[in-house]
């Protein structure tokens, strides 16, 4: 991979569980600052593909590149430090921590300035810059009012926003958002779409979005990749893929 405009490149990525090819030879690119939707029916392999990109699963075949760098074999935390942020289908928040602390820990890990000896000398207080960054991100996602609330006290909608804010606090080049509208109502979904658009357009963050809500997908993404039963069945703009008979068959069971 030598194209500097490409943030993420998947080349023939495959993942097998037992005898089932959950992801079967998937290839596509996500360009810098681009928003790509990854859609498909349940069981299509979207989340497994996400896990292969993040390193929570290692792909069996093929290669994953992030900004020219091959990721195969690299553990999750190193991929995250390279600039891959992620939200989860089933929220993965830290219940005992406040919203602000979620962001501060992500910032500190990203900057790599946290040290045990600094903690022991009480030199680890958040800096003014770190607080400003966390304030900006909380403001962006609409969590400022809840900054000092423990996440255990929040509902699902706010937890999804906390996850998003935490991922953004690490200033990712690529954001993987896994069904961010799951469990949200119409108003919250619209708010989430607006945040994702802002993140892409104002920060230039590339987004790979897994989502079942096709209205949200149409609002957020520039391009769509459709998966079914582990394989890529279509790629193109939202309107193009929705008009594709293979996609209609995968989603609606309509005959091509």
């Amino acid at each position: 991979m030598t194209d500097p405009a490409v943030t993420l490149r998947l080349k023939d990525v495959s993942k097998t569980f037992g005898i089932v090819n959950v992801v079967d030879s998937i290839s596509f690119d996500v360009k810098a600052g681009e928003s790509v939707g990854l859609v498909g029916p349940n069981g299509a392999g979207k989340t497994t593909l996400f896990n292969c990109v993040c390193g929570q699963l290692q792909n069996d075949h093929g290669a994953v590149y992030f900004e020219d760098q091959p990721l195969n074999g690299m553990p999750t935390y190193r991929r995250a430090r390279l600039g891959i942020g992620r939200t989860y289908q089933r929220t993965e928040v830290f219940p005992d921590m406040t919203v602000r602390n979620h962001l501060l820990v992500a910032e500190r890990v990203h900057s790599g300035t946290g040290r045990l000896w600094k903690d022991l000398l009480n030199m680890s207080k958040p800096t003014k810059e770190e607080i400003e960054v966390s304030d900006r991100v909380m403001d962006l996602v609409g969590l400022m009012e809840l900054a000092d609330t423990p996440v255990a006290a929040l509902g699902l909608g706010h937890c999804r926003l906390v996850e998003l804010a935490r991922a953004l606090a690490g200033e990712p080049t690529l954001l993987l958002a896994d069904e961010p509208s799951s469990g949200l109502d119409e108003r919250e979904t619209a708010a989430m779409s607006a945040v994702l658009r802002t993140v892409q357009r104002e920060r230039g963050t590339a987004i790979l979005l897994v989502e079942h809500d096709l209205e949200m997908v149409s609002e957020v993404v520039d391009r769509v990749v459709v998966m079914d039963l582990g394989s890529k069945v279509a790629e193109g703009t939202f309107d193009e893929v929705m008009a594709n008979p293979a996609v209609r068959y995968a989603y609606l069971g309509e005959s091509a």
Partner: peptide
Amino acid sequence: MILFIRKGTTGRVLGALKGSETGAAGIGIN
């Protein structure tokens, strides 16, 4: 020592580890 650790980066990192290992790895925690 424990109070300082808790207030500092290590405390937050441990809070993340305790809350969700998947989430912690996802933000770059080793």
